[in-house]
Design a protein around this nucleic acid. Structure first.
Length: 111
DNA sequence: CGATTGACCGAAG
DNA sequence: CCTTCGGCCAATC
């Protein structure tokens, strides 16, 4: 039940330390390329869920759009910086270098 | 129960 | 380059 949400959490938990991914990439990996909003919403309702490193999930531009949902609106950037990711003006520097695509790094779901 | 919104994305004008 | 629009689906009003 709520497989989509659960799958989102599974993928997010598999994001390597010091890497980030995008909502759309996760949605596409789950077979719902146009349901990226649901990924973001999954984070919103699960901000308290478990060890879901939501700070490693940003939009496709590498912009920390979800920082406002973190306590103090600074935690997200601090967490990312503590993992070796440089952020300038709420945007990840060299985003493509840190981008982690589940479609390329994880096996297909339909195993 | 209808209307609005939202941590998004991509295409079109 | 910038703005607008459609789509997706759940939660909230």
């Amino acid at each position: 039940m709520s497989q989509f949400f659960d799958q989102v959490y599974q993928v997010v938990q598999k994001i390597p330390v010091g890497r980030v991914t995008s909502y759309g990439a996760i949605a596409r990996y789950l077979g719902h390329p146009q349901s990226a909003r649901m990924v973001g919403y999954a984070m919103n309702v699960s901000h308290n869920h478990l060890d879901v490193p939501a700070h490693r999930v940003v939009n496709r531009n590498g912009l920390l759009t979800g920082k406002h949902h973190f306590p103090g609106c600074k935690l997200m950037q601090q967490l990312l910086e503590s993992e070796g990711i440089n952020i300038k003006n709420d945007q990840i520097v060299d985003f493509k270098d840190f981008f982690w695509d589940p479609n390329l790094s994880l096996p297909p779901l339909y195993i």
